[in-house]
Amino acid sequence: MSDHDNYSDAHIRDILASVRSIAMIGASANKVRPSYFAATYLIAKGYDLYPINVGQAGNEIAGVMTYASLGDLPEPVDMVDVFRRAEALPGIVDEIMAMPHLPKIVWLQLGIRDDNIARKLEAEGMTVIQNRCPKIEYGRHCGEIAWVGVNRRIISAKKPILKPGYQHFTLEGQHA
Protein backbone atom coordinates (compact mmCIF):
# COMPACT_ATOMS: atom_id res chain seq x y z
CA MET A 1 0.00 0.00 0.00
CA SER A 2 1.26 3.50 -0.70
CA ASP A 3 2.08 5.79 2.21
CA HIS A 4 -1.20 7.45 3.14
CA ASP A 5 0.40 9.51 5.91
CA ASN A 6 2.62 11.41 3.48
CA TYR A 7 1.75 12.17 -0.12
CA SER A 8 4.56 13.95 -1.90
CA ASP A 9 3.70 17.27 -3.49
CA ALA A 10 4.89 15.94 -6.85
CA HIS A 11 2.49 12.98 -6.60
CA ILE A 12 -0.53 15.21 -5.91
CA ARG A 13 0.47 17.71 -8.58
CA ASP A 14 0.91 14.93 -11.15
CA ILE A 15 -2.55 13.57 -10.42
CA LEU A 16 -4.25 16.95 -10.70
CA ALA A 17 -2.32 17.86 -13.85
CA SER A 18 -3.03 14.56 -15.64
CA VAL A 19 -6.68 13.96 -14.75
CA ARG A 20 -9.25 15.41 -17.18
CA SER A 21 -12.60 13.99 -16.02
CA ILE A 22 -13.93 13.68 -12.48
CA ALA A 23 -17.08 12.06 -11.10
CA MET A 24 -17.95 13.76 -7.80
CA ILE A 25 -20.02 11.52 -5.54
CA GLY A 26 -22.05 13.61 -3.13
CA ALA A 27 -21.94 16.87 -5.10
CA SER A 28 -24.54 19.10 -3.47
CA ALA A 29 -27.02 21.37 -5.22
CA ASN A 30 -26.89 23.62 -2.14
CA LYS A 31 -24.74 26.55 -3.21
CA VAL A 32 -23.06 27.05 0.18
CA ARG A 33 -22.00 23.43 0.78
CA PRO A 34 -18.28 22.64 0.51
CA SER A 35 -18.94 20.08 -2.26
CA TYR A 36 -20.63 22.75 -4.38
CA PHE A 37 -17.64 25.07 -3.85
CA ALA A 38 -15.26 22.32 -4.90
CA ALA A 39 -17.39 21.43 -7.93
CA THR A 40 -17.55 25.00 -9.25
CA TYR A 41 -13.81 25.41 -8.72
CA LEU A 42 -12.87 22.21 -10.53
CA ILE A 43 -15.17 23.11 -13.44
CA ALA A 44 -13.54 26.56 -13.64
CA LYS A 45 -10.16 24.83 -13.84
CA GLY A 46 -11.26 22.97 -16.96
CA TYR A 47 -12.13 19.51 -15.64
CA ASP A 48 -15.07 17.60 -17.10
CA LEU A 49 -17.06 17.20 -13.92
CA TYR A 50 -19.91 14.69 -13.45
CA PRO A 51 -21.89 15.30 -10.26
CA ILE A 52 -23.30 12.08 -8.77
CA ASN A 53 -26.33 12.71 -6.56
CA VAL A 54 -29.36 10.44 -6.70
CA GLY A 55 -31.73 13.17 -5.52
CA GLN A 56 -30.59 15.56 -8.26
CA ALA A 57 -30.28 13.08 -11.15
CA GLY A 58 -31.35 14.75 -14.40
CA ASN A 59 -30.83 18.24 -12.97
CA GLU A 60 -27.80 20.44 -13.41
CA ILE A 61 -25.45 21.17 -10.49
CA ALA A 62 -23.08 24.06 -11.08
CA GLY A 63 -24.22 24.05 -14.71
CA VAL A 64 -23.47 20.40 -15.53
CA MET A 65 -25.70 17.31 -15.72
CA THR A 66 -26.06 15.20 -12.58
CA TYR A 67 -26.24 11.39 -12.55
CA ALA A 68 -27.78 9.03 -10.01
CA SER A 69 -24.81 6.66 -9.80
CA LEU A 70 -21.43 5.85 -11.28
CA GLY A 71 -23.17 3.16 -13.37
CA ASP A 72 -25.16 5.86 -15.16
CA LEU A 73 -22.15 7.81 -16.40
CA PRO A 74 -22.17 8.27 -20.19
CA GLU A 75 -18.39 7.74 -20.50
CA PRO A 76 -15.36 6.60 -18.49
CA VAL A 77 -13.82 9.04 -15.99
CA ASP A 78 -10.20 9.44 -14.86
CA MET A 79 -11.03 10.09 -11.22
CA VAL A 80 -13.79 9.45 -8.69
CA ASP A 81 -13.93 12.10 -5.92
CA VAL A 82 -15.89 10.91 -2.86
CA PHE A 83 -17.66 13.72 -1.00
CA ARG A 84 -19.66 11.50 1.35
CA ARG A 85 -19.47 10.40 4.98
CA ALA A 86 -17.20 7.46 5.79
CA GLU A 87 -20.25 5.18 6.41
CA ALA A 88 -21.15 5.39 2.72
CA LEU A 89 -17.73 4.14 1.59
CA PRO A 90 -18.35 0.36 1.36
CA GLY A 91 -21.29 0.83 -1.01
CA ILE A 92 -19.32 3.30 -3.08
CA VAL A 93 -16.44 0.85 -3.40
CA ASP A 94 -18.83 -1.77 -4.77
CA GLU A 95 -20.10 0.78 -7.28
CA ILE A 96 -16.56 1.64 -8.36
CA MET A 97 -15.60 -2.01 -8.74
CA ALA A 98 -18.63 -2.53 -10.97
CA MET A 99 -17.62 0.27 -13.38
CA PRO A 100 -16.82 -1.08 -16.87
CA HIS A 101 -13.73 1.16 -17.01
CA LEU A 102 -12.12 1.61 -13.61
CA PRO A 103 -10.96 5.16 -12.82
CA LYS A 104 -7.20 5.70 -12.45
CA ILE A 105 -7.68 7.70 -9.27
CA VAL A 106 -10.05 7.43 -6.30
CA TRP A 107 -9.91 10.51 -4.11
CA LEU A 108 -11.50 10.62 -0.63
CA GLN A 109 -12.38 14.02 0.77
CA LEU A 110 -10.92 15.79 3.80
CA GLY A 111 -11.91 13.89 6.91
CA ILE A 112 -12.39 10.51 5.17
CA ARG A 113 -9.76 7.85 5.59
CA ASP A 114 -10.07 4.05 5.47
CA ASP A 115 -6.84 2.19 4.78
CA ASN A 116 -8.59 -1.16 4.25
CA ILE A 117 -10.69 0.30 1.48
CA ALA A 118 -7.64 2.03 0.03
CA ARG A 119 -5.82 -1.30 -0.06
CA LYS A 120 -8.72 -2.96 -1.83
CA LEU A 121 -8.83 -0.26 -4.52
CA GLU A 122 -5.06 -0.24 -4.92
CA ALA A 123 -5.12 -4.00 -5.45
CA GLU A 124 -7.17 -3.30 -8.58
CA GLY A 125 -4.53 -0.87 -9.85
CA MET A 126 -6.19 2.36 -8.77
CA THR A 127 -4.26 5.17 -7.05
CA VAL A 128 -5.94 6.34 -3.85
CA ILE A 129 -5.68 9.73 -2.16
CA GLN A 130 -7.39 10.07 1.22
CA ASN A 131 -8.30 12.92 3.57
CA ARG A 132 -7.53 15.71 1.09
CA CYS A 133 -9.60 18.24 -0.82
CA PRO A 134 -8.87 18.53 -4.57
CA LYS A 135 -9.83 22.21 -4.54
CA ILE A 136 -7.38 23.00 -1.74
CA GLU A 137 -4.68 20.89 -3.38
CA TYR A 138 -5.23 22.54 -6.76
CA GLY A 139 -5.13 25.95 -5.08
CA ARG A 140 -1.89 25.05 -3.28
CA HIS A 141 -0.13 23.80 -6.38
CA CYS A 142 -1.27 26.46 -8.85
CA GLY A 143 -0.67 29.12 -6.20
CA GLU A 144 -4.11 30.76 -6.00
CA ILE A 145 -4.84 29.72 -2.42
CA ALA A 146 -1.99 31.95 -1.23
CA TRP A 147 -4.18 34.96 -2.12
CA VAL A 148 -6.22 34.26 1.00
CA GLY A 149 -3.17 33.89 3.23
CA VAL A 150 -2.94 30.09 3.27
CA ASN A 151 0.43 28.48 3.94
CA ARG A 152 0.93 26.25 0.89
CA ARG A 153 4.01 24.55 2.37
CA ILE A 154 5.52 24.78 -1.09
CA ILE A 155 8.36 27.07 -2.06
CA SER A 156 9.47 27.62 -5.64
CA ALA A 157 11.61 29.94 -7.74
CA LYS A 158 9.37 29.19 -10.76
CA LYS A 159 6.48 31.49 -11.64
CA PRO A 160 2.82 30.48 -11.36
CA ILE A 161 1.21 29.71 -14.75
CA LEU A 162 -1.48 32.18 -15.83
CA LYS A 163 -4.70 31.11 -17.51
CA PRO A 164 -6.60 33.49 -19.80
CA GLY A 165 -8.70 36.10 -18.01
CA TYR A 166 -7.99 37.79 -14.72
CA GLN A 167 -6.64 36.10 -11.59
CA HIS A 168 -6.55 32.50 -12.79
CA PHE A 169 -3.60 30.18 -12.35
CA THR A 170 -3.46 26.69 -13.81
CA LEU A 171 -1.70 23.35 -13.48
CA GLU A 172 -2.09 22.64 -17.19
CA GLY A 173 1.27 21.75 -18.64
CA GLN A 174 2.62 20.94 -15.16
CA HIS A 175 2.39 17.16 -15.59
CA ALA A 176 5.89 15.67 -15.35
Binding site: G143, A146, I155, A157, K158, K159, P160, L162, F169
Partner: peptide, 10 residues
Protein backbone atom coordinates in the same frame (compact mmCIF):
# COMPACT_ATOMS: atom_id res chain seq x y z
CA UNK B 1 13.47 34.20 2.14
CA UNK B 2 11.25 32.08 -0.08
CA UNK B 3 7.92 31.27 1.57
CA UNK B 4 5.09 32.96 -0.33
CA UNK B 5 7.30 34.66 -2.89
CA UNK B 6 7.49 33.24 -6.41
CA UNK B 7 8.53 35.30 -9.43
CA UNK B 8 5.68 37.52 -10.59
CA UNK B 9 3.61 35.53 -13.12
CA UNK B 10 2.95 38.47 -15.43
Amino acid sequence: IHAGAQPDPA
